[in-house]
């Protein structure tokens, strides 16, 4: 069974700021981490491999330093990793990113299952997973919260919904995006860390994945960011004190006064 996991390196959400000049994310001095949802996708892939055998391949599209999250993935149980990196990919939106990752996955031969995090915590679009599935022409299930049963042919999962969950069976090849409830990611093992340190991580360029240049990077991105801004901080807060009853009274009085 060949499982591919798509990983993104993102700025640590504990410290996200916008550059007021350029309206883009201020990345300088901000620590980069593996997108937290992707850690859960990786854990699910490794768990499925442990159950059914096979290979877990991790890919990321990003600048050369994104190799760090690939090594981290190997330490956590992935067998191999590929860095999809080329200057031509810069400025890609979710459309161009899905195209690029799908082209990269198509170079890997037979792939049974592709796993992605539900979304990346920097863009929060949740579009890339489904985008890849559409490009690959495989069925997809988003927001998977639990694997109920799996084989090397298909998988039965719970898809998180606003009012509960759906139980969905999907045949392979398929793509799933996962939420954090799906599992508890393991801590990278000592042997994994040793392996990660020594691993050779190949880089795939635009030419290697036989991509059409007009579909890549900024050129291939229909999305235009007109303005990015931080919402203005509102200072008008009141903290109620006293017993719960007193606090409720104060709140009700204020609401009445206001409306």
């Amino acid at each position: 069974m060949h499982i591919v996991v798509c990983i993104k390196q993102v700025p640590d959400a504990k410290d996200v700021r916008l550059d007021p000049e350029t309206n883009t994310l201020a990345r300088e001095g901000v620590e980069s981490i593996m997108n937290p949802y992707d850690r859960h996708a990786l854990e699910e892939a490794v768990a499925l491999k442990e159950e059914h055998g096979g290979t877990v391949t991790v890919i990321t599209m990003g600048p050369p330093q994104a190799e760090e999250v690939l090594r981290e993935s190997i330490a956590c149980g992935a067998d191999q990793a590929l860095l999809v990196s080329d200057r031509a990919f810069a400025g890609a939106d979710t459309w161009a990113t899905s195209y690029t990752l799908a082209k990269a996955i198509q170079t890997l031969g037979k792939v049974d299952l592709t796993l992605c995090g539900k979304q990346a915590i920097d863009g929060d679009t949740a579009q890339v997973g489904p985008g890849i599935a559409c490009r690959l022409g495989v069925p997809f299930v988003t927001c998977v919260q639990k694997t109920r049963q799996s084989s090397t042919e298909s998988i039965i999962v719970e898809r998180m919904m606003d009012d509960g969950f759906d139980v969905v069976q999907v045949p392979f090849p398929a793509l799933l995006t996962v939420v954090k409830d799906i599992n508890e990611p393991r801590v990278a093992s000592l042997k994994g860390k040793m392996k990660a340190k020594k691993a050779t991580i190949p880089t795939l360029s635009a030419a290697d994945i036989q991509a059409e240049p007009q579909n890549l990077g900024l050129t291939g991105s229909p999305t235009q960011v007109v303005r990015v801004f931080s919402p203005e901080a509102r200072g008008d807060r009141t903290v109620f004190t006293g017993t719960v009853e007193e606090q409720v009274d104060q709140l009700v009085r204020q609401l009445k006064d206001h409306f």
Binding site: R186, V187, A188, S189, L190, K191
Partner: peptide
Amino acid sequence: KDIAKADLFSIFVPEEYGGF
């Protein structure tokens, strides 16, 4: 179990018996 998965139990076992 988490400690085991992270290979920490292998620290004190010689390499010829699967340890670190």
